[in-house]
Design a protein around this nucleic acid. Sequence first.
DNA 1: CCTGAAACCTGTCTGC
DNA 2: TGCAGACAGGTTTCAG
Length: 272
Amino acid sequence: MPELPEVETIVRSLRSGGMTGDSILTRQISSVECFNSKTLVFEGSAEQCSELLRGSHFLSADRRAKYIRLRTESHWILIHLRMSGDLRCEADSGELLPHDRLVFHFSDGMRLVFNDVRKFGRVWVTDDPEAVLAGLGIEPLSEDFTAEWLTAHLAGQHRVIKSILLDQSLIAGIGNIYADESLFDAGIHPKRPACSLTEAECEKLRNSIRKTLEHAIEQNGSSFDWAYKGGHFQNEFRVYQRKGEPCPVCGTPIEKIVVGQRGTHFCPHCQK
DNA sequence: CCTGAAACCTGTCTGC
DNA sequence: TGCAGACAGGTTTCAG
């Protein structure tokens, strides 16, 4: 599922083209079509949105947490892929695919398509992106995310560490896969109360989170089942979706439990 | 205030 | 084989 590494990979391909399609930068929007009313978040109708953006160009593409940010001369398009969203830039000819929810048509015969099987994804068109992004926590790959920062922010937290890692208002961008993989790498049990982590464990966890995310980005993120194509990190999962398989470190069978309503994989020997 | 659980969705897997 | 039900997952919203 799209988490920080997958979103980063998609943003990079939107920006520079390659692998999954062409660059969207400098292309001019000629119209916008929306096929699912809940997908577009905009003060007005889809037709008004299309009219508003007609003639605008995509000037930049970047990422904040799991959000994709596209800037035009006058507005921001914010996209959250949630569970099953995907984007592709392609020639604006031929049939659309099942589950295509929203299309930006370009004046040069290309199009940017938002596909989303489960309809959880959202596309915001706004002139005030901070209203959507307010409340997001620190970027785990930023310079500010230090061992000291993590130690200080876990201090008063009585919730279990796995839930903390998934809390976007604290650390923004980690999802279920990378929470499990990071905790395994750090040797920390997912149900440990966050405030019980020692300073040394906080530093280890901080390093494991960065290492795991950076490695996943190098692999273009994770792909599995029918969701999200092009990544390779799923071949390097050490605990995620490996219930019953031997721990790559000690050989103990990986266990799966539920923590904060989320499936959670860990090694009962390596993660105390 | 904080925590937990339901709701939102639909394709796929599991069990009877 | 067929079908009902469980499950997955990120976030918001509601309940306790």
